[in-house]
């Protein structure tokens, strides 16, 4: 028979790790299932608003979280991706991953968000062959080359600014009539000598042979081709909530929770960036993870 845990925590970013620390201290019988540890915090640049740390980098803070997590004997199922979460009878939830199946009497969804894909031909084929979603990581590999940044919000402007100092020429491909990011960053972009901004422009395809060599762009009713060796896709984030089919989400796919982190299904809670809680911040995700764990603990106490 499959073991039935008290609690399964899906995700090990700031929300999932904090929930796990609380669950360990409540001596709950639980496991954590996650593809990676640290979540988006591990990808953040400088963090200057996490109380107690006046300055810390994302990877350093994520390492601190991990260290805290590993202080406890935690049943950690790493490198596993949840593919479905279903309610079974008698208040038992079934969590299926790409490798195994687990059961628990309560679940916390803390699976966070991931970079949104453009959905154009060539994008998947050339991932890590010129197409990247992390300028901070891969940007320095494009020294002296021509690159395109796709997007017009703050993350796109941030990537574009980083690349003006590294690449030869930087195209900013924005699908809106105007740049939507902060004016301060926009002004810096406009002042950079090696940036070409294309507003109202859509990427139609990413082309190449072994590696990316260009983009097909729809611009002003025409199709243009530009030659670039790198494409940085910075068009925002989507919640990792697709596996939770029975859970009610908002129009953005964010899991709807109440102030006690409850979803529409009793026994299933959610916390952090995957939820509709306003403001996606590391400190907020951590606090929500703590709340979700305490709510799950109370829920289980009432079931007995």
């Amino acid at each position: 028979m499959t073991k039935i845990y008290d609690l399964i925590i899906i995700g090990a970013g700031p929300a999932g790790i904090t929930a796990a620390v609380y669950a360990a201290r409540k001596r709950m019988d639980f496991c954590v299932i996650s593809k990676d540890i640290g979540g988006q915090a591990a990808w953040s640049g400088n963090v200057e608003n996490y109380t107690g740390y006046q300055f810390v980098t994302g990877p350093e803070l994520a390492a601190k979280f991990e260290e805290h997590l590993r202080r406890y004997q935690i049943d950690l199922k790493e490198e596993q991706e949840v593919v479905s979460l279903k309610r079974r009878d008698k208040g038992v939830m079934a969590v299926r991953t790409d490798k195994a199946q687990y059961e628990a009497r309560s679940v916390i969804i803390a699976s966070g968000k991931r970079s949104k894909e453009l959905g154009v031909p060539g994008e998947k084929e050339f991932k890590n062959r010129g197409v990247t979603y992390c300028a901070t990581c891969d940007g320095p590999l494009f020294g002296g080359k021509d690159v395109a940044i796709v997007g017009g919000g703050n993350s796109a402007l941030d990537a574009a600014l980083q690349m003006t100092r590294i690449a030869r020429r930087v195209y900013l491909i924005n699908s809106f009539p105007q740049i939507t990011g902060d004016a301060v960053m926009r002004d810096k972009i406009m002042a950079a000598p090696n940036v070409i901004v294309m507003n109202d422009a859509r990427v139609l395809a990413i082309t190449g042979d072994s590696f990316v060599n260009g983009l097909a762009i729809g611009h002003g009713g025409q199709e243009n081709k530009i030659e670039v060796q790198g494409v940085f896709i910075e068009i925002g984030l989507v919640p990792n909530s697709g596996f939770a089919e029975e859970i009610v989400a908002n129009d953005f796919g964010e899991v709807k929770v109440d102030c006690k982190n409850r979803t529409n299904i009793p026994g299933i809670f959610a916390a952090g960036d995957v939820t509709n809680v306003p403001e996606k911040q590391i400190i907020i995700a951590a606090g929500e993870g703590a709340k979700a764990c305490l709510s799950a603990f109370r829920y289980l106490a009432q079931q007995k």
Partner: peptide, 14 residues
């Protein structure tokens, strides 16, 4: 590696 990539830092820590 690059100086800025989070997973490069994690790899070196490991």
């Amino acid at each position: 590696s690059t100086a800025t990539c989070p997973y490069c830092i994690r790899l070196k820590q490991f």
